[in-house]
């Protein structure tokens, strides 16, 4: 099966000279469709940097990273959920969910139907017309999951999606994510510091000092 993402000896350094900070280094890994991974590790260990590299939001300073299943064009084809609020403030929930589809060039009406279906799937159809500022933290994250679902990506990346949630809610959101990933046959990467959350995922990678310790 074609790998969704493949890293070979990837490193990312911030700054230059004596001030340079090595965020991650020597990362070699690969994910296939259907893989579900929890990345754990202390803060500052490079989890977020690795996630950004995997999502194609950042470029490595050394090594290579590729997305064979995506013909190496990751932009817009990877579902991303951030630690903080990841919804666009001026758009309501349905418009937020429809946005990746509209950006990809789908007509408004079709995108909206898809969005409502996705909201329904994650159980927040009632929130379709709400603005992000009217949503609670848990609701916002569920809408973000719906947005990932609507985009039907083959790779989903979530950075501490449950940091600001109750444990019960956190588990629910991550269950939703694994469910969605399973439905889409996509690879899922979740960075978390919550062991209960990590246990929900079949694979677990640990980051330490910028390197994968597996």
């Amino acid at each position: 099966m074609t790998e969704v993402v493949r890293c070979r000896d990837v490193a990312r350094t911030y700054g230059r000279g004596v001030e340079a900070v090595v965020a991650v280094h020597g990362i070699t890994c690969a994910l296939r469709p259907g893989d579900q991974v929890a990345i754990t590790g202390p803060s500052g260990s490079g989890k977020t940097t690795l996630l950004h590299l995997l999502a194609g939001l950042d470029r490595p300073t050394a090594g290579t990273i590729g997305w064979p299943a995506l013909d190496d064009r990751p932009r817009g084809r990877i579902g991303v959920i951030f630690q903080g609020p990841s919804l666009l403030a001026p758009l309501d929930a349905a418009e937020n969910v429809a946005l990746p589809l509209v950006i990809a060039g789908r007509p408004d009406g079709e995108a909206r139907r898809e969005a409502l279906r996705a909201l329904n799937t994650v159980g927040v159809a009632a929130l379709a017309a709400k603005l992000p500022q009217q949503l609670s933290g848990g609701q916002a994250q569920r809408v973000a999951v719906a947005r990932v679902l609507a985009g039907s990506p083959s790779l989903i990346i979530a950075d501490e999606p449950t940091g600001q949630l109750d444990s019960a809610l956190a588990l629910h959101v991550v269950e939703l994510l694994t469910d969605v990933a399973g439905r889409l046959g996509a690879a899922l990467v979740v960075a978390t510091h919550d062991p209960l959350v990590a246990e929900l995922l079949p694979l677990r990678w640990e980051m330490r000092d910028g390197a994968l310790a597996c």
């Binding site: 999502a55 939001l57 817009g76 991303v80 666009l88 403030a89 001026p90 950006i103």
Partner: peptide, 18 residues
């Protein structure tokens, strides 16, 4: 004021032209 909105749209795959 809307830098965040634009950045998020970029993350969702919006090209500069969009």
């Amino acid at each position: 004021e809307r830098r965040r909105t634009f950045a998020l749209a970029r993350v969702l795959g919006a090209r500069p032209r969009q």
